[in-house]
Design a protein around this nucleic acid. Structure first.
Lengths: 106, 106
DNA sequence: CATCTATTTCGATGTTCGTCGAAATATTCG
DNA sequence: CGAATATTTCGACGAACATCGAAATAGATG
């Protein structure tokens, strides 16, 4: 059954990524630690995730964690909300879906 | 145009990628030129793609192309078949799908 | 065999990047 | 305010990487 998309596409804007953002996301994913952080953020979608709660298999310095979070945020994959001492990390699901769509079009 | 590919397609199990291969693919995608090559290989699924037919927007040396093709092959994304002077590049769709599945599980 | 073309390998180079320690900044609490 | 804790910025270092020129290899063809 062919799906007929005769509805106005106004429901959700399937935003396309710029080449720049696509590259930034690709690089962000290509680092194991960064991807691990992203996975934890995604898994904690229920509640906000404090930076200090990130658990790494290996010991990792706070400076490095901060660096990776910054890159994930600059790639648009997560949003960082400052509340008190902790930063809350929120996955930008729309951006991630847009990235998956672009990869799927290969 | 109904394409009747009744050719015996290899029985592809939905395999899961090893962490090593997942990382290799992620790195392969994270380079613009490599991803461009991958796109061309995918677009030429109909026929085999000779290395020399790869078209890059920028001038790129043969040495660099060879390097990127080697990395794509080592990541398992493409298969290189030597036939005469030209190497034929074939996308490994199963590996690519497995990569997409892993990303989708985030 | 000699030669031409296509591709790979080698070595070198400049850049990007992940990592950390130390200093700086922010935020809460006594 | 001042101490304590959490996070970021800065500067530096080493490893990984993309790139290329030149030499080497492979295959086709005369």
């Amino acid at each position: 059954m062919p799906r007929s998309e005769t509805k106005p596409v106004a429901v959700k804007k399937a935003e396309a990524l710029s080449d720049e953002q696509f590259l930034a996301i690709s690089k962000a994913v290509a680092d194991p630690r960064r991807f691990a952080i992203l996975q934890q953020v995604a898994a904690f979608q229920a509640g906000p995730l404090a930076c200090s709660n990130l658990q790494e298999h290996n010991v990792i310095s706070p400076a490095t964690i901060s660096h990776h979070i910054k890159e994930l945020a600059e790639a648009g994959l997560i949003q960082v909300e400052r509340e008190g001492r902790c930063g809350n990390l929120i996955l930008q699901r729309g951006v991630w879906d847009a990235y998956l769509r672009r990869l799927s079009s290969l």
